[in-house]
Design a protein around this nucleic acid. Structure first.
Lengths: 340, 340
DNA sequence: ATTAGCACTCGTTAAATATGAGTGCTAATA
DNA sequence: TATTAGCACTCATATTTAACGAGTGCTAAT
């Protein structure tokens, strides 16, 4: 167990290191107003803290830096969660409201805002359309052999795909197929369209054989439509300002990783659903983010569960401020109404 | 005017420098099989080439590197344009064909392909939808006060926007408005929708006042739909392998610039329409691309003019190979049929 | 239990030195 | 006259050496 003084010293070391990115020495600490002990006393406590694995030194004659265990202790015990500053949240809500009522744009704006508030890179993942249900299928002819098939979800998302037919198709065949699709598939979760149609297709074979090929073509195109989750990166440049990323060895893996949209999406989707979750350093298990910490949170927009937002900074990130800003942003998003 | 030998030497210097990224000395050159002169002779010619501004030395005791003027001369006189290797083009066409028939995906694939062939970053700009004409407007209700308005262009591009009405709207009002929009606007270039509707709106005021607000809301939403040109970056990582971008001072501006989608789009759109155009070093006028050269070309897909593709590498780029690969890719794209 | 004092460690910086690739010029050669 | 061998000179880069100083751990005094 830590003594009060050790706690004070640990906190001071981390606070100082977060600000300066330099190892913190005992003399520096003893000069702080909130630490009244001599440097020797502090040194003794530092040795104890090091024995406990909370801090470490880069080399013999350097000051101490927090270890990952130290940061973990700091975040779990020394960061007060969820103090929502009503005034500030209101201001954020206001800024979000001004930008747009389009959910996609709102999310982007939120990510940018969070990035600007914290100076860390942010990633926002939109809703996973796989969960939404089909509201309607429609078709628009372009010419004799081409047309666009559209699907709309209950949440108002639209996806489309151009269909190319083998031969000229009679309008009523298309009409009938679309009607069939609407009859059978409306209300089906987007992710299950493909499976669902399999059950229905058998009945089709009884129908007119003549246009069978074209009908199947249209159906396959429809259920094959992908609904990609929208991903947005805010403040990618911010990383350039971090002292730990001033070398190519550290910068390159980070940039390469962050640019891999698909992997990023998977990662965000795989995160545990929580309010606000802090992953410190190598805890995240991603090699490219070894020296990064991540604050993630699911968010709701206008009450509905929506997606995930993440904030990525160096392990030496300002956890207190980060957690607080994250809390404010998701609260502001929660309060934002889409329809007024 | 350059003597034959000087030409040979200039070419050798540039070829060598392109490969090694190191200043080229007279002794190195004299050992090449294609240069039979002594190092002293080469030194004399080098001095002349330097006087003409074609090469320069980083410092007194270093070899020579090509100047921008030198590269320009090299590209204009020493790079043979447009030798299309039928075999290779066919292979590229094959690979493109396999990927998809969806134009968007084809373009991405082409950009990736070009990047892999050359090891430089590529940017592909899709067609500018502003030029396409409206083929159809449609509306799908979501609930009493919301719906999705869709527009389709003659090229099969679809854009949509969610509309939020002030009050409950009668289906027949919507139907009528949509019919009106289709009647008046089909065939109008997307870029001119807004202007065009102004002329029509006066007549509207005579119609039922009651639902005027909602009708206007629907119309405004429709003509306000943006059709962003699609932009795709291929091989962004490639820059990390270039020796001239191993330092943050050079890397950072490049990465920051390349990530600015909007600026990038504008830049590509502002380029002169040409088959293949090479911009060397500071010629492009962009500070962040001072040390980069760009090979750009408009391309056609399936015969139709489509967009612009660009290849960005260090000034010390392999122009011969780059120009050739660019030629092959746009030829392969030109031959690719969308509908078979 | 705390603190002053001191020897010791070791990364960082600066100066001193060595290395060598490459040049320009001059004089000899074909 | 054009080419080449020879040589002194330049200058970026790498290596070595020395000085510096922030910070530590330990011991003895308070």
């Amino acid at each position: 167990m830590l003594t009060d003084r050790q706690l004070l010293i640990l906190r001071a070391i981390i606070d100082d290191y977060i600000q300066t990115a330099q190892p913190v020495g005992s003399r520096t600490l003893s000069k702080r107003d909130d630490l009244t002990f001599s440097s020797a006393t502090i040194r003794n406590d530092m040795a104890d803290l090091e024995d406990m694995g909370l801090i470490e030194k880069p080399h013999t004659s350097a000051g101490r830096i927090p270890s990952e265990v130290g940061y973990r202790y700091y975040v779990d015990h020394l960061v007060e969660k969820q103090i929502i500053d009503e005034r500030e949240t209101g201001r954020l809500e206001e800024r979000l409201k001004q930008s747009s009522k389009e959910s996609e744009i709102l999310i982007r704006q939120a990510a940018d805002l969070l990035s600007d508030l914290t100076n860390y890179t942010t990633v926002a993942l939109g809703p996973n359309s796989q969960m939404e249900t089909l509201a309607r299928v429609d078709f628009m002819p372009l010419d004799e052999r081409r047309g666009v098939v559209l699907i709309v979800t209950d949440q108002g998302h639209v996806e489309h795909r151009t269909v190319m037919f083998e031969s000229r198709v009679a309008p009523d065949v298309i009409e009938e197929t679309i009607r069939l699709l609407n009859d059978r598939l409306v209300g089906t979760p987007i992710g299950q369209l493909k499976i669902r149609i399999g059950e229905e297709v058998a009945k089709l074979q009884l129908a007119q054989r003549q246009q069978y090929e074209n009908m199947m073509q249209l159906i396959q195109s429809t259920v094959g439509i992908q609904t990609p989750s929208s991903l947005y990166l805010g403040g990618k440049k911010k990383i350039f300002n971090q002292p730990e990323f001033q070398t190519l060895d550290t910068l390159r893996p980070f940039l390469e990783w962050i640019d891999e949209q698909e992997r990023l999406t998977h990662w965000l989707e795989s995160l545990p659903n929580r309010e606000i979750y802090v992953s410190i350093g190598s805890e995240n298990g991603i090699v490219a983010l070894q020296n990064c910490s991540v604050i993630t949170s699911d968010y709701t927009l206008d009450g509905k569960t929506f997606g995930t937002i993440a904030m990525i900074g160096p392990t030496r990130m300002n956890y207190r401020h980060g957690v607080q800003m994250m809390g404010q942003i998701i609260e502001a998003l929660r309060r934002t109404k889409l329809d007024e």
